[in-house]
Design a protein around this nucleic acid. Structure first.
Lengths: 251, 251
DNA sequence: CGGAACGTTGAGCATAATCAACGACTGTGG
DNA sequence: CCACAGTCGTTGATTATGCTCAACGTTCCG
C-alpha cells in the first residue's frame, strides 16, 4: 500500500520532465557510460521496462557456471569477477568488470562461467531473452554491444599473452600498472596512487599464480622501490611509472 | 581486350540465374557457413561488391600488429594464426581461424595483433570501413557477427583457464582433443584420426610452452598409448577418446 | 579471549625452461 | 649423383622458476 504512494509520484515526476526519460534512469550514474548511452532519452524506456535494480552484497554469486543463462545486466556500481574453473577446483579469473560494463553472454542457453561480486554491487538486471528482443529494435544498442564485445575479445587476447608468456614478476607488475592506468590518481608530487580492487588471492587467480608467489613479487617490487604500500595492503603508490613499465615490457 | 570477353559473360551468367546471386559467391565453399549465411542470395551483392578474393601462400603475413587496421575478411579455405607478441620476441598464438571464420577487428584504427597464414589460404577480403558500412544496412549480418564475437570471447576465456591453470600434459592433451573434436574422423575401428594443423613450434606458441616440452609430452602420451602417430608427425590417432578426456579434466 | 581471514616469509621440491646434441627429411647446387 | 645447409622433431643434462607445505604476524569480529 505504501508502494501506491511512491510509484505514481515517480511516474508523474518522469512525465513532468521535457522528455520521457524514466525516473530510475535519470539519476543513474552510468547513464552515459553503459550501453544505455547508445539510446536517446526517449528510447530508454525500452530497457527500463525490462530492467530491475538489484543490490548484490560482496562475495555473493550473481550467476553460476552450468546454470541456465537467464540474466544479463549493466553494472551501476561495484566490481565483479568472472571465473572459469576445473572439476578439481582450480580457478582462473577470466575477467574483471567495473561500473558501466555489461555482464552476461547473450544467445547461449547455458552459461559456462561463474560471476561473483567482489564489492557490494548495484546491477541493472534484464532477462536475457527480453534484452535480446530489445536489441532487435535498437541498432545503435546492438552496435555498441558489438564494439564492446570486440574490445573485450582484444583484452582477453592480450591477457593470453600474459598468462602464456610472462613470468611472475611481469604479471604482477603488469596488473598493478593496468589498474593504476584505469583507476589511479596522481597526487601533488606526481606519484600515482591506486587502490587495488582485489585481494592477494584474487590477484593470484587473475594472474595464474599462487598467493605466495604474488606476495613475494609484491615485496620484491616494494624492496626495489618500484611501489610502496600505505594504509594497509590495498593502497599502492607508484613513485615512477616508467620503472613499472620497464618491468612489464622489457627489451 | 580479352577481359572484355570474359567479364560480360560472367555478368550474363549471373543474371541468367533465377536470383541475383553474384557468380563468385554462387560457387563459394563457405556461402552457408561464413557470415554470408546471414544474407539472402539477393543481398549478397552488397558484400560481393566490396570484396576481393586473395590467395595467401603459407607463411605469409596477412596483417601486422601496429599497422593501420585496414582490412577484414572471410576465410574461404585454409588456416590462419592470430598472434600477440612482446618487444623481446616472446610470442603467443591467441587464436586459430579456419574456413568460414571471420578475420579482423572492426571499429579499431590500429590492429594490435598479427595474422599469418599457416597453410595456403583463400580469403574474401573487404576494406574494414566498407564492411562496417555494409553492417549498417544488414542487421542480420551484424547479429551473426555479434554472436560469433561473443562465442570467440567465450573460447578465449576458456583458453585463459588453460594457460593459467593447466600443466603441460593437460595443455597438450587438451589441444589434441580440441582439434580431434573439431576436425577428426572416426575410422572403421572406432578410432579417432586427425591431422594436426600446426607444427610443434606453433603448438608451443599456442599452449604457452616450449617446443621441447610439447615434444616430450607428445612422446609421453605416445608411450602411454593414449595417442599414436602414423605417416609423419602430423597424423594422429586416438584409440580411446575417454583416456584423453580423463587427462584433460581430472578429478 | 579465541578463531577466522588475510598476508608474509622460509625451506624444499617439482615442473618446465634452457642449453646442447643428434636424427630424419627436403631442397639446392656442384 | 652426392654433399650441404636448413628445417623440423626428439632426447638428454642441468638449471631456474614458481609451487607446496609450514609457520607465523596482523586485523577484525564474535
Amino acid at each position: 500500500m505504501a508502494q501506491f504512494d511512491v510509484l505514481p509520484v515517480n511516474q508523474i515526476a518522469g512525465k513532468a520532465t521535457m522528455d520521457s526519460m524514466p525516473v530510475r534512469c535519470r539519476s543513474c550514474g552510468v547513464r552515459d557510460t553503459a550501453l544505455c548511452a547508445s539510446l536517446g532519452d526517449g528510447e530508454l524506456s525500452a530497457l527500463h521496462d525490462i530492467g530491475r535494480r538489484r543490490i548484490i552484497p560482496a562475495g555473493q554469486v550473481v550467476s553460476w557456471a552450468g546454470d541456465p543463462n537467464a540474466i544479463c545486466a549493466n553494472i551501476v556500481r561495484g566490481v565483479l569477477k568472472v571465473t572459469a574453473s576445473m572439476a578439481d577446483g582450480r580457478e582462473q579469473i577470466v575477467g574483471l568488470l567495473y561500473s558501466g560494463d555489461f555482464v552476461g553472454q547473450l544467445f547461449a542457453e547455458e552459461s559456462s562461467l561463474t560471476v561473483i561480486a567482489l564489492t557490494e554491487t548495484d546491477l541493472c538486471c534484464y532477462s536475457r531473452t527480453s534484452f535480446e528482443h530489445v536489441l532487435d529494435d535498437f541498432p545503435r544498442l546492438e552496435r555498441m554491444l558489438l564494439k564492446r564485445t570486440m574490445s573485450s575479445l582484444n583484452d582477453a587476447r592480450e591477457r593470453m599473452l600474459r598468462l602464456g608468456r610472462q613470468n611472475a614478476q611481469e604479471r604482477v607488475a603488469g596488473f598493478i600498472l593496468d589498474v593504476a592506468l584505469r583507476e589511479g590518481l596522481e597526487d601533488e608530487e606526481g606519484e600515482l596512487n591506486v587502490v587495488l580492487p582485489i585481494s592477494r588471492g584474487e590477484m593470484a587467480d587473475f594472474l595464474g599464480l599462487t598467493i605466495e608467489t604474488v606476495s613475494r613479487q609484491l615485496t620484491r617490487l616494494k624492496t626495489d622501490g618500484v611501489i610502496a604500500f600505505a594504509k594497509g595492503d590495498r593502497v599502492c603508490t607508484i613513485p615512477e611509472r616508467e620503472r613499472l613499465e620497464a618491468i612489464v615490457n622489457p627489451f
